[in-house]
């Protein structure tokens, strides 16, 4: 970096209204998450072997979602991130749900026929 470039860099020039500290997650925490994920995998396999009717996919998806949330919060550090990142993640899942629900609105009601 040249001297000329350096003179105009100034931390006061950063507009950063909601700044989050750079949090370091400890290996102990990572290990606990790791254990929880393996446990979840075992649970989901066991749960699939039991006939629970309509509850089977619900449980499978519930466990998968829990695991995903754990990964997002700890492995991906979202728990310690700014509101911006949290909102971004939420925004992604919201749009995904819009895609699913509004498309399903067609498929679910198609069989109802004409009114």
């Amino acid at each position: 970096m040249t001297a000329h470039e350096q003179h105009y860099h100034d931390p006061a020039n950063v507009t950063n209204p909601e700044h989050s500290e750079h949090h370091i997650v400890s290996p102990v925490q990572y290990s606990m998450v790791f254990g929880a994920l393996l446990l979840g995998t075992l649970l989901t396999v066991l749960a699939a072997d039991v006939d629970l009717g309509a509850m089977n996919p619900v449980i499978a998806l519930g466990i998968a979602s829990t695991k995903a949330v754990i990964v997002i919060l700890f492995f991906m550090h979202v728990k310690y991130q700014s509101h911006l990142i949290k909102m971004t993640v939420a925004c992604g899942f919201f749009t995904f749900l819009v895609l699913i629900t509004l498309t399903l609105s067609d498929y679910v009601s198609r069989a109802w026929g004409l009114w």
């Binding site: 699939a48 998968a64 995903a68």
Partner: peptide, 17 residues
């Protein structure tokens, strides 16, 4: 990883009984 966490139950465990 997360994608796979969903793929595994959805593809492998639809109805194992």
């Amino acid at each position: 990883d997360i994608v796979w966490l969903f793929l595994f139950p959805l593809l492998y465990l639809i109805n194992r009984h």
